[in-house]
Amino acid sequence: MAPVGAPATTGGDTHRIDKAIVISLAEAHGFRLAEESDLFANAEDDRTINVFDPSIRRKSDRFLLRFEKNQAPDL
């Protein structure tokens, strides 16, 4: 996960993205956030190191989101 407020271009440097960007993109395509979990969170990750760096690889701070497709309105 990228730091809160990080631009989408951060992904090109660190392979991370701000959770808010993912939620916004999903909502723009007709989904709503149904649930989220901190199952993959790691408070010790400062979110600035590339996720492929051996010091953080497979231990980066990550998020888990579940989306549901918005229902079409009844006609």
Score class of each variant (00 low, 15 high):
Asp18Leu: 01
Ser24Gln: 13
Ala72Lys: 00
Ile49His: 01
Ala6Trp: 02
Phe67Asp: 09
Ala8Gln: 15
Asp13Leu: 07
Val22Arg: 01
Lys19Glu: 09
Val51Gly: 06
Arg16Gln: 09
Arg58Leu: 11
Arg57Cys: 15
Ala8Pro: 11
Ala28Phe: 11
Asn42Asp: 03
Ala20Thr: 10
Ala2Tyr: 02
His15Cys: 10
Ser37Tyr: 12
Ser37Cys: 12
Asn70Val: 05
Asp53Tyr: 07
Val4Ala: 10
Asp61Leu: 04
Lys59Tyr: 13
Met1Val: 13
Leu75Ile: 10
Pro54Asp: 05
Ile56Tyr: 08
Glu27Gln: 08
Gln71Gly: 11
Phe63Asn: 00
Gly30Leu: 03
Glu27Val: 06
Glu68Leu: 08
Phe52Gln: 13
Leu75Tyr: 03
Arg58Ser: 15
Ile21Arg: 00
Arg32Ala: 15
Thr10Cys: 08
Lys19Val: 07
His29Trp: 02
Ile56Glu: 08
Thr48Pro: 01
Thr10Glu: 14
Phe52Tyr: 15
Glu68Val: 11
Asn50Glu: 14
Asp74Gly: 05
Arg58Asp: 15
Asn42Ala: 03
Phe40Glu: 01
Ala8Arg: 12
Arg62Ser: 12
Ala41Met: 07
Glu44Asn: 15
Lys59Phe: 14
Arg62Thr: 12
Phe52Trp: 13
Leu65Arg: 04
Pro3Cys: 06
Ile49Tyr: 01
Ile56His: 06
Phe31Ile: 12
Pro54Met: 04
